[in-house]
Design a protein around this nucleic acid. Structure first.
Length: 732
DNA sequence: GAGCACTGC
């Protein structure tokens, strides 16, 4: 029996709630009158941002704000900021740093800049769009101003800010985009990088970039905000910048480990759920698993097991949670636990079975028990074969800590780790490897080049990527013509960097007018940029497969996606049509959105929008050639043995079972390489060998080609080409 | 004959 074997070991580090709030209310009283900033704390009746009198709600919220832990250190923070260019602030969940610190900064900047004509904006970055949006809304409310006016946000597809905006929340990726046109970020006086511990690719690039910018702009200030782990690392990186710690506000969480390793974490998780449900007091359960299929499977098993127990236990509501779930289904996590099945019966319980999405992106109040098997799907990159793939791997200590914290948001909780304490300390790494060390950097390198960073080897990364990864990225960009042989950005590279896409796709778009099919390539690119549009419900798999087959194009999956997009538009984007054809309408809307953005970028660079006549034999041929113009490095050749080998890398790959191809073409281009039960290539289209040597002769240069079957075929193709040239010469 | 961890431009 699991729980009996589990051993209680330690208390989660917590701040006892009552003592903190007690201290805070006292300090605040003194601050409001005693501090030099006191007059800004609400004693004035007029809102200086819009000249209107404060609403009653403003004062109401102000009282609550003042009880947040950060308010206790407001003066300390402002003084440290005044004396330093860079400041690190660490604070756990519940400290109020994300909403309050930017307001403190704004107040300080406003006082130091009496000349109101001078622009002084503050940026606060977030790794996720929803956070940027919801936090800015909250702060606008706290400041008693209209969202989009003095306080705004900026995310892809939506800029909710104006000329009046002084405080802007934006995604880290968005700030990076802004830097491409405004390299010194001159519109900002203070930049706050929030959730820096998450180490997203964009945040890591911003780190290095801002370090440079700060040298050139002594008037600019930087605040790095992070959860506690690794704070010293940040401090060292930013030349020993002062570090401030703010307590969080979480209830204590008791952590339990198993006494022996678990062989099957899914089985162990279900066993633990059943035990909690039988033995523990009321409170909802959150279980972390790795993916959609596993979660759906687990939900069925949990319902079955608990169903079998009949009336001896209370009713349960089992709720799956993962990102591809429609928003309406995701909302179910906020529904209350079911009532007892009969009056006076045992209380009900909600059981949320979630991916990592519940670790950072979504918080569910009312969770008292967390079950952590210790695994997550994580991206890994192998530069040798240029393959990014998802692997189920052990989480980090920081992740385990974050997961446990999910149990203590509303009351004291318990976290059951389905691994041993020894395994926790010996096997788990402290911190998840930053994304920059796990990614293909072709796009990042292109961005850095556009930002004017020429010497990548000496660029000050907090964690420098492997030289091989950088070399690979440079090589790819050189083949695409984005960088010249000296590594300098070309005109082509400059245009490519404007597209929010991978370099291969950008290249394909930029040259698509030359193949007279930019309209179609835009549609294909949009479809490739969104999640899979085909819906395949468990109860209607056959019907869904038949529906998909109706969109199938004999030459491959890229053209099938084009068929879907055209059919969607021809049917006026009708939701019923989508439903009947097993097409995800949300995905199609997203694709349309992406397409519009891409069209705007094409227009900005005078790239012609054009199509080959649909009745022409060349309609699809031109599209396939254009695909090749971007993806010539992702080609596989069918060997005599009957399996595919990727060109140059010579990896054995298989057509993904989802392909619409009913035959095996000699040459195929693929969009993605997925590593699961086998090496698959997914989204595959038939291309002709002759096109390879026409479209990408520099890559299919035989001088620089490993000995293989594909090379011998190419040799014959080159010879054939030469003979044809001779013949036509002789005829003339 | 398999499957989209999670973000972001």
């Amino acid at each position: 029996m699991g729980t009996e074997r589990k051993r209680k070991v330690s208390l989660f580090d917590v701040v006892a709630d009552p003592s903190v709030s007690g201290k805070i209310s006292k300090t605040n009283g003194a601050m409001a009158t005693g501090s030099s900033n006191g007059k800004n704390d609400g004693s004035s009746l007029v809102n200086r941002w819009n000249g209107r009198p404060y609403s009653a709600r403003y004062y109401e919220i102000l009282e609550k704000r003042k009880s947040l832990p950060v308010w206790q250190q407001k003066d300390e923070f402002l003084q440290t900021l005044k004396k330093n260019q860079t400041l690190i602030l660490v604070g756990e969940t519940g400290s109020g740093k994300t909403t309050q610190i930017p307001q403190f900064v704004l107040e300080a900047v406003d006082m130091e800049t009496p000349d109101k004509r001078k622009k002084m904006m503050i940026a606060c970055t977030q790794p996720r769009r929803v956070a940027a949006m919801s936090v800015s809304r909250r702060v606008a409310e706290e400041m008693d101003v209209t969202i989009g006016e003095e306080v705004g946000y900026s995310i892809r597809f939506e800029d909710c800010s104006s000329a009046r905006t002084v405080l802007k929340y934006l995604t880290d990726g968005m700030l990076l985009r802004e830097a491409m046109t405004d390299p010194l970020l001159e519109r900002y006086k203070v930049i706050i990088l929030d959730e820096a511990h998450e180490r997203t690719l964009a945040t890591d690039v911003l780190f290095g970039l801002l370090k440079e910018v700060l040298k050139n702009r002594p008037d600019l200030k930087l605040v790095v905000m992070s959860a506690t782990l690794e704070a010293e690392k940040f401090q060292n990186y930013f030349y020993g910048a002062p570090l401030m710690k703010v307590p969080g506000r979480l209830h204590p969480v008791e952590v339990f480990y198993t006494s022996e390793p678990e062989r099957d974490y899914l089985e162990a998780a279900i066993r633990t759920i059943v035990q909690i449900h039988m033995l523990e007091p009321p409170g909802d359960i959150l279980v972390f698993l790795t993916g959609e299929e596993e979660i759906e499977d687990a939900c069925r098993k949990i319902n079955k097991e608990i169903g079998n127990m009949g009336n001896q236990v209370g009713p349960v509501k089992v709720v799956p949670l993962y990102s591809s779930l429609p928003p309406a289904m995701q909302q179910k996590i906020f529904e209350p636990a079911p009532p007892p099945s009969e009056e006076g019966g045992r209380p009900g319980r909600k059981i949320v079975v979630a991916t990592n999405i519940a670790e950072t992106s979504l918080t569910i109040d009312g969770i008292v028990y967390v079950i952590d098997p210790g695994f997550a799907k994580q991206k890994v990159y192998n530069p040798r074969v240029r393959v990014e793939s998802l692997l189920v791997s052990p989480i980090s200590k920081a992740s385990a800590h974050q997961r446990a914290g999910r149990a203590g948001r509303t009351q004291p909780g318990k976290c059951f780790r389905l691994y041993t304490e020894r395994s926790f300390s010996n096997d788990l790494v402290n911190q998840t490897y930053p994304e920059i060390l796990r990614s293909n950097l072709a796009n990042t390198v292109l961005t850095l080049k556009k930002l004017g960073i020429d010497d990548l080897v000496h660029f000050d990364f907090m964690d420098p990527p492997a030289p091989e990864t950088l070399m690979r990225a440079l090589e790819v960009l050189n083949y695409l013509g984005a960088l010249d042989d000296d590594g300098n950005l070309t005109k082509m590279g400059e245009i490519m960097s404007e597209f929010p896409l991978d370099p291969q796709m950008s290249k394909m778009l930029v040259v698509s007018p030359e193949f007279n099919c930019s309209n179609e390539i835009l549609s294909v690119s949009a479809m490739l940029s969104v999640p899979n549009c085909f819906v395949r419900p468990r109860e209607a798999q056959k019907a869904a497969d038949e529906a998909k087959a109706r969109f199938g194009h004999i030459d491959g999956d890229h053209l099938t996606l084009l068929n879907v997009y055209h059919a969607y538009k021809q049917n006026s984007e009708d939701p019923t049509w989508c439903y009947e054809n097993f097409i995800n309408q949300r995905t199609m809307k997203a694709a349309d959105n992406v397409r519009q953005q891409l069209v705007r970028i094409m227009a900005r660079y005078n790239l012609k929008l054009c199509s080959t006549d649909f009745n022409s034999r060349d309609y699809y041929v031109n599209i396939r050639k254009a695909l090749l113009a971007g993806y010539f490095m992702q080609v596989a050749h069918l060997e005599k043995t009957g399996h595919y080998l990727t060109v140059k890398d010579n990896q054995v790959v298989h057509l993904h079972p989802s392909t619409c191809l009913d035959h095996k073409p000699e040459w195929v281009i693929y969009n993605e390489y997925v590593l699961t039960s086998r090496n698959f290539i997914r989204t595959v289209t038939d291309v002709r060998g002759e096109w390879l040597v026409d479209v990408a002769p520099h890559y299919y240069d035989l001088e620089n080609f490993p000995q293989c079957e594909a090379k011998r075929v190419l040799e014959r193709l080159y010879k054939k080409r030469e003979r044809e040239k001779e013949d036509s010469k002789n005829r003339r």
